[in-house]
């Protein structure tokens, strides 16, 4: 398998406070990788640093064999990293269809295919993004990221705060994307689904990667010590 995303010795700062110090991460082509750790250990900052949304950072981030550390956020997105940020951020002043079209690029993902993955979005196409339910907004944000035709999809807390039924719907669409061969980097709180779907796991502790391996190698001790379960 070829390596798609490789993060080595990633460091990041908010002002003078160092939040990341030694994050190691690797996503292979077509692989689902979960980034785990307790609250405040640096998961979202790692994703922000990969996508250039956290500005003060150092180390090495290679995507498709190219260093992306120096690229601005929009070029990282164009290079093929589709981000679904935490907190369901739709463009509230645009309709569902416009939200998707704004992000569109040439490639296999178009409106039709996104509507097939999330039929609810097709029903809501002319509605304003702000009038959708939480679950529908999350589907819209995932759909919007797919419209950029990414090679790697990053989902940051995609199922947080959603009703259990909707959560299942999102998980099943993530499984469908996995089957279609999409590489995915996941951050989530629902451990069972994460371990079920992931090919590989990385655990962060105080801003550094402390454990990595396949989900079935994750022992109860490690889970207890670093995931608080």
């Amino acid at each position: 398998m070829t390596c798609l995303l490789e993060v080595q010795n990633l460091q990041a700062w908010y002002g003078r406070i160092q939040v990341l110090d030694g994050v190691e991460l690797r996503v292979e082509e077509g692989q689902v990788v979960s980034l785990m750790g307790r609250n405040g250990m640096g998961k979202s900052t790692t994703i922000g640093a990969i996508c250039a949304l956290v500005e003060q950072r150092a180390g090495s981030i290679t995507f498709a064999r190219q260093s992306i550390l120096e690229l601005p956020a929009y070029q990282i997105a164009r290079a093929g990293i589709g981000l679904v940020p935490e907190g369901r951020r739709v463009f509230a002043n645009l309709s569902v269809r416009e939200n998707l079209s704004a992000a569109a690029t040439r490639g296999p993902w178009d409106l039709h295919r996104v509507y097939k993955l999330f039929p609810r979005l097709a029903e809501r196409a002319p509605q304003s993004g702000a009038t959708l339910s939480g679950g529908e907004q999350q589907m819209l944000v995932i759909g919007r990221a797919l419209m950029t035709n990414p090679r790697l999809l990053i989902l940051d807390e995609a199922t947080e705060g959603l009703a259990p039924v909707i959560r299942q719907e999102i998980w099943s669409s993530i499984r469908q994307l996995k089957q279609e061969g999409m590489a995915i980097l996941l951050v989530d709180k629902t451990l069972r689904e994460l371990l079920d779907i992931a090919d590989n796991c990385f655990i962060l502790e105080k801003g550094a990667t402390i454990w990595s391996g396949a989900p079935d190698h994750l022992t109860a001790d490690v889970a207890d010590a670093f995931l608080g379960v």
Binding site: Y74, R78, T105, A145
Partner: peptide
């Protein structure tokens, strides 16, 4: 910022 995340230079 969100626009940049979908590949558009604001």
């Amino acid at each position: 910022v969100r626009v940049a995340a979908v590949g558009i230079a604001p």
